[in-house]
């Protein structure tokens, strides 16, 4: 099959997600399958690409949360069509444990990051707010998580973020679990200081960073 043809299927999937068109995404996904397009590639280069473009528009303040949710609904609808045809596993990019430690009066930041993770193909466990540091570590152990994400918009939780890293260092999990932090008062310098593995300036960036962290880990393990 010619490359150009494949690229057209991917583009249609990507565009349908970006245009928030659930029906069109389902049709495009079915169409791709009918024409022997590899479902994994259709997810990666089609659906995920559309979601990444939506994330960019969100960053550019052209898309907002409702638009992002509709894109993600379209993406999931397409995923439902393609997933049963995946040969191996690999539909999930990894598991993320997310939550706000304590003292934060806003959780919209965390919720936004959660949506972005979910739409970015991660399995997300949301611990909500007022979560003791130890629970992040316990949940990461139980769920075999790849990432712990600590997000805040306005906070007094910065010490707690350091505590999570410390607890993780003291556990036997550190090698397999990456910690990422982000939000209003958090700086890259702070992230480094407390020993976090990643820092993201906003929700869209968080997913990019998470993908890099998981990919880097996979390379390291190979």
């Amino acid at each position: 099959m010619a490359d150009k043809e494949q690229a057209e299927y991917f583009k249609e999937l990507s565009d349908a997600v970006l245009d928030m068109d659930e029906e069109r995404t389902v049709t495009a996904a079915q169409d791709a399958l009918d024409n022997s397009i590899d479902p994994y590639e259709a997810i990666q280069n089609g659906l995920s690409d559309g979601m990444a473009r939506a994330g960019q528009l969100f960053e550019d303040e052209e898309y907002f949360i409702p638009e992002l949710l509709m894109c993600s609904d379209a993406m999931y609808a397409g995923l439902d069509v393609l997933k049963p045809h995946l040969k191996a596993t690999g539909e999930s990019r990894g598991t993320v444990v997310i939550g706000v430690i304590e003292g934060d009066t806003h959780d919209i930041g965390k919720n936004m990051v959660r949506i972005m993770f979910e739409t970015g193909g991660f399995h997300v466990i949301d611990l909500g707010r007022d979560v003791p540091p130890q629970r992040f570590v316990d949940t990461a152990r139980e769920s075999k998580a790849d990432i712990i994400a600590l997000s805040t918009l306005m906070t007094t939780t910065m010490d707690g973020m350091g505590t999570v890293v410390k607890l993780l260092n003291e556990s036997d999990l550190r090698a397999g679990v990456k910690v990422m932090v982000g939000g209003g008062p958090i700086s890259p310098g702070f992230a480094k200081r407390i020993g976090a593995d990643g820092y993201a300036v906003n929700a869209a960036e968080a997913v990019k960073v998470a993908r890099e962290l998981v990919a880097r880990d996979a390379v390291g393990a190979a």
């Binding site: 303040e61 907002f64 949360i65 409702p66 638009e67 806003h106 919209i108 936004m112």
Partner: peptide
């Protein structure tokens, strides 16, 4: 109403 700010919904909404 933090949920209606520019990071959440568009101006027309």
């Amino acid at each position: 109403n933090p949920g209606a700010n520019m990071q959440c919904i568009s101006r027309p909404y």
